[in-house]
Simulated assay, not measured.
Amino acid sequence: MCEDETDWLSLKPTEPSPAQCCGSGCSPCVFDIYQSDLERWEKAKELGDTSLLSRRKVENSGSVLNSETFTAFRLILVERETDDTNRYRFHLPNGSSLGHMLGQHIVFRGIVKGLEIQRAYTPISRLDTRGHFDVLIKIYEHGLMSQFITGWKEGDWIECRGPFGGFSYRPNQYGELVMLCSGTGIAPMLPILSSVTDNEDDETFITLVICCRTYEKLYLKSFLHEQARFWNVRIFYVLSQVNTPFGLIYLCVGISFH
């Protein structure tokens, strides 16, 4: 029970800073959550009832994630993909799966120089992967979140919330899917590709076009070459900095084993 104005002010939710919004259109956004908490606080203050400040229980969707609150996951593997990009693997308790859908992303948060930063990343694991999930993250020299991620080491507990976004897809819903991506933009494409090739009854034809500066900068090449062996998958690499006797040229390379 709050006795005076000072007590109530101490319970008032704090408005997020712009850096706490990842800019990915999450629903709810941190500002949506703040507005909801503020309205709940105003109602509780009006009625003098602090019990109203407790958030309503979020309906269980079978996911280990929560879209409104952050959950900490233990980092169990850091694997270098290129000179500036790593794959990070996080442990999921009790052999559970992440519970996300195709195209969905999650939001990580960290503290850099006292400032809370939030950024969105798409899990690249298959939807039915149990016991862990992977994300592919590029480190930017002057990126605020990158400064936080650079300090990650195996055994650390990292907070994230979600999942957000996504789109509806049913096997054989389309005759062909054409997917275009660049750099780490390949992340949301990978679970889609896997969901098609893992399902023998899904005859959707996949054309994946990946843009990158050089072949060495391409991510997950072994996985992509494996996927290109499927009869309904074509993968093209569009490289923008290929050295030749005539200088740098653009090069489009298609890989297919059928």
Rank of each mutant, 00 (worst) to 15 (best):
L224I: 02
G165P: 08
E159Y: 02
R130Q: 11
A187E: 09
G62Y: 05
N60Q: 10
A187S: 12
C252R: 13
E68L: 08
Y121Q: 02
F148Q: 00
I106V: 15
T244H: 13
G247E: 14
S222V: 06
F133V: 05
V135G: 01
I186K: 11
C2P: 00
W41K: 00
Q35R: 15
S195F: 07
V58A: 12
F148N: 06
K153Y: 03
A72K: 11
C22P: 11
D4T: 06
L251E: 05
D156I: 03
T71K: 15
Y34C: 01
L38D: 08
Q35F: 14
L208R: 04
T6W: 08
G162S: 01
K12N: 11
L208S: 05
S182V: 15
K217S: 10
Y140N: 04
V196F: 05
D202P: 12
D198Y: 02
P18F: 09
L193R: 02
M145Q: 05
E226A: 11
C26Y: 07
F223S: 06
I235L: 01
V242W: 14
V178G: 09
S194F: 07
E203F: 03
R170E: 12
D83P: 12
T122M: 05
E5C: 09
C21L: 04
R234P: 05
S36H: 05
I235H: 05
K221Y: 02
G25A: 02
S222I: 06
R40E: 07
V112E: 01
C22Q: 00
K57N: 05
E59H: 00
N60G: 09
I149Q: 02
W231F: 07
Q20K: 08
Q147S: 13
G99R: 01
I149N: 01
L75W: 11
C29F: 01
P191C: 06
D156T: 03
F167L: 08
H105T: 09
W8V: 08
E216H: 07
H132M: 09
I124C: 08
E42W: 09
T122H: 04
L127P: 00
N86G: 10
L251W: 04
Y88N: 03
F70S: 07
I192G: 02
R80Q: 15
E68H: 13
Y140S: 05
G166S: 09
P13F: 05
G110T: 07
M145Y: 01
G175E: 12
R89T: 12
V107C: 11
C29H: 03
L239H: 12
L190R: 07
A19D: 15
F133T: 01
Y169Q: 04
I149A: 04
P18I: 02
L75A: 14
S61N: 13
L75P: 06
E42D: 07
D156R: 00
C211N: 00
N243L: 14
Y169A: 00
Q35G: 14
C26F: 10
